[in-house]
Computed example of a mutant assay.
Amino acid sequence: MTVPTKIDTWQMVEPGKLVETSIDVPALQEGEVLVEIAGCGVCHTDVGYYFDGVPTVTKPPLTLGHEISGVVVDGVGDYAKSLIGKEVIIPAVMPCNNCDICASGRGNRCLKQKMPGNSLGIYGGFSSHIPVPAADLCVVEDRKDFSLETLSVVADAITSPYQAAMKAELKEGDLVVVTGATGGIGVYMTQIASVLGAKQVVAIARNKEKLQRSLDFGATYAISTLDKSVKDVAAEFKAYCKENKLPSAGWKIFECTGSKAGQEIALAILSFVGRMMVVGYGMQKVDYMLSKLMAFDAEIMGTWGCLPKYYPEVMKYVLDEKIKVKPFVEFRPMSQIEQAFQESHAGKLTKRIVLTPDF
């Protein structure tokens, strides 16, 4: 294994400005490894940091990117050294495993967590290498016919909706709605709901063509929001329930858009003993009468990242192709990062871009 002295990287020196540069490989501490990056997915969160001024924990300059797969090339400590040569997925959020929140079983929201491209110092996935804690890496022992760069999206796009499903206690026979079902997270949320045994998975999104595709990937019914008000979409949902003798109560709603419209639709559908999971992130504010939650005995819950313990479960679903990944990713050289960000921000993409190092 070649251990470099420099990391080639695309740094965000300020929101809206990227610079190709190189930085020193830091001295690894006990329990840390250096990973040679195979691929890093372009997530909506990265685009938010870059274009919308969403603040990162580490102030610029820093490298963005948190959907990372690669190969361990160096390590300090017995366990870290045992990983040298292993192919790994780096969890998007890595808990400290030594605080009250972690002890409570909710380490995915550990306040000391390390997230590449946000709170792991200046280090992120749009680089040649990255130093990370070794403890929670997901080792890929046999990736079958998947390329390692394909599996990078497991680190967030697939595991985050899986965490949402776990927190929602999604089980066989459940009734599920996914708003933003055709987006980078939504395409996996519908599949996960189906794999876990949901009786109904209603996909809601704007693009009719993509919605039609969702019926092949977990959705049982699709509602387009194109040229419809929030009230229109809610009425169509209620009509579907009535026509198919389904209750309008008790649905588990996964809001994956992070947009004001998506959140308003999810809230309009939320009814008696329902549960709404806020999966997508956005800066908009939404008006809602909280007393409805009391009257409905309903819940609205946030969900962040994914516990590392769930990664092996998700990897099994992916490698067994129960959760389909290949139709939803495309690959570009990392030198096209600015164009990839622009296209993602414009909402023009039909697949998630995975950038591969070409320094």
Score class of each variant (00 low, 15 high):
Asp52Leu: 15
Val286Arg: 03
Ser22Cys: 06
Trp304Arg: 12
Arg206Lys: 13
Ala103Cys: 07
Lys285Gly: 08
Phe237Gly: 05
Glu255Phe: 14
Ala92Glu: 11
Thr225Tyr: 01
Phe51Glu: 09
Gly31Leu: 08
Ala135Lys: 15
Pro61Asp: 00
Pro95Asp: 08
Phe359His: 03
Met189Ile: 03
Lys260Ile: 07
Thr225Glu: 02
Ser271Val: 05
Arg106Ala: 10
Thr179Arg: 06
Pro60Lys: 06
His129Thr: 00
Ala268Pro: 11
Ile337Glu: 00
Ser127Glu: 02
Val154Thr: 10
Thr58Ser: 11
Cys241Gln: 00
Ala234Ser: 14
Gly65Gln: 12
Glu299Val: 14
Asp145Asn: 15
Ile300Glu: 08
Glu343Asn: 10
Ala346Trp: 04
Ile37Tyr: 08
Pro55Lys: 09
Gly180Pro: 02
Met294Gly: 14
His345Arg: 15
Leu211Val: 13
His129Asp: 00
Pro131Lys: 04
Asp24Trp: 00
Gly282Ala: 08
Leu215Gln: 11
Val57Trp: 10
Gly105Ala: 13
Val19Gln: 09
Met334Arg: 01
Val54Gln: 11
Val233Arg: 01
Ile158Thr: 05
Asp320Ala: 14
Gly258Ala: 03
Met276Asn: 11
Val19Ile: 15
Leu267Pro: 06
Pro91Asn: 07
Asp358Arg: 01
Thr356Phe: 01
Gln113Gly: 05
Thr2Pro: 05
Thr159Asp: 04
Asp145Arg: 10
Val76Ala: 08
Val279Gln: 01
Cys138Glu: 13
Leu62Val: 03
Cys241Glu: 03
Trp251Tyr: 08
Arg109Gly: 04
Arg352Leu: 04
Asn118Ile: 11
Ser22Leu: 03
Leu293Ala: 11
Val3Asn: 07
Arg275Ser: 14
Lys114Gln: 14
Arg106Ile: 07
Cys102Glu: 05
Glu32Asn: 02
Pro116Gln: 02
Val140His: 04
Glu338Met: 14
Tyr317Cys: 06
Met315Ser: 07
Glu172Trp: 06
Lys114His: 11
Met1Asn: 10
Arg213Gln: 15
Val35Arg: 00
